[in-house]
């Protein structure tokens, strides 16, 4: 009898061969992921008292505020990016015009930049010598700067998050069944109602998936924050500082684990929600 991969049983020699094929990926993930992670976990519990680092991370103002700021920043970046991308994506999916493909490729341009370059771009715009500073000097004699505050981070993060979400939204919007909207219209549904009941529900799986990715990227983004050297300490920056300047490796490990856990949890929830949406329990 033959069994496929989806079957429940594999014959002895087959499973041996399969194991052999899986070996490279097992070695790589063990060497570069599982082992360091285990080590990280062990380090994070080092110290006078068991779990003291975590307790400190969640109670001491310095760490807690870094954690909360990063969370708030990532959530707001995700929401704003989703809103912009839905509007943009729907427009791009439904309208044909000259230069459309050029526009789409421009909008997806940030994908090509590392975070540091995005940080530079934000400084060019909102830094002390930036465009908005020049404009401020001209208008009311003060330099308008926002690059080094949380606003600068926000702008940079939204900028590099848009392409990831936008491409997914365009693809999903092109697959929306136009007749659903016509059916809703036949009952006299308003445009808002159609947007809520038909379009947004149709885009929901795509929004959940790309929103989760956007959130995870924002939580872990380092280059932009580093380039901007902001007065806000996002969590990756705090980890970096603890590790290199404070040499507080145990604390850095605990914060890393926390960052990983939160991000993983959000990705997991998003997958569960979109999975539940796509195939309801029979």
């Amino acid at each position: 009898m033959k069994y496929t991969l989806s079957g429940r049983w594999l014959r002895g020699e087959q499973s041996a061969r399969l194991l052999l094929l899986l070996l490279p990926v097992l070695i790589i993930s063990a060497a570069f992921f599982l082992l360091p992670l285990a080590r990280l976990l062990v380090i994070s519990f080092e110290g006078d008292q068991w779990g003291a680092n975590y307790w400190q991370a969640l109670t001491e103002a310095r760490y807690l505020s870094s954690l909360i700021d990063t969370l708030l920043l990532s959530v707001s970046v995700t929401l704003v990016t989703l809103a912009i991308s839905v509007v943009c994506g729907l427009f791009l999916a439904r309208n044909e015009f000259a230069g459309k493909s050029l526009l789409v490729s421009l909008l997806t341009f940030p994908l090509a930049f590392p975070g540091v370059v995005i940080g530079f771009l934000v400084i060019m715009l909102g830094g002390r010598q930036g465009l908005s500073a020049e404009l401020g000097l001209m208008l009311d004699g003060t330099r308008w700067t926002f690059a080094y505050s949380i606003a600068g981070l926000f702008v940079g993060y939204v900028y590099f998050s848009i392409p990831r979400v936008l491409l997914t939204v365009i693809a999903a919007a092109e697959k929306l069944d136009y007749q659903l909207e016509e059916a809703a219209r036949s009952f006299g549904a308003s445009r808002y109602r159609i947007f809520r009941d038909v379009i947004l529900t149709g885009l929901k799986p795509a929004l959940l998936a790309s929103g989760a990715i956007c959130f995870a990227t924002s939580m872990g983004a380092f280059g932009t924050a580093f380039a901007l050297a902001t007065d806000i300490n996002v969590l990756p920056m705090t980890i970096y500082t603890e590790f290199t300047l404070g040499a507080n490796i145990a604390m850095a490990a605990a914060l890393s684990i926390l960052l990983g856990l939160i991000t993983w949890l959000v990705l997991f929830l998003a997958r569960m929600l979109s999975g539940a949406d796509a195939s309801p329990a029979a």
């Binding site: 007749q179 059916a183 036949s186 949406d277």
Partner: peptide, 12 residues
């Protein structure tokens, strides 16, 4: 009232 070829029922 409209009935479409693809039915256009709301999947959610």
């Amino acid at each position: 009232g409209m009935v479409f070829q693809s039915y256009a029922l709301f999947p959610n």
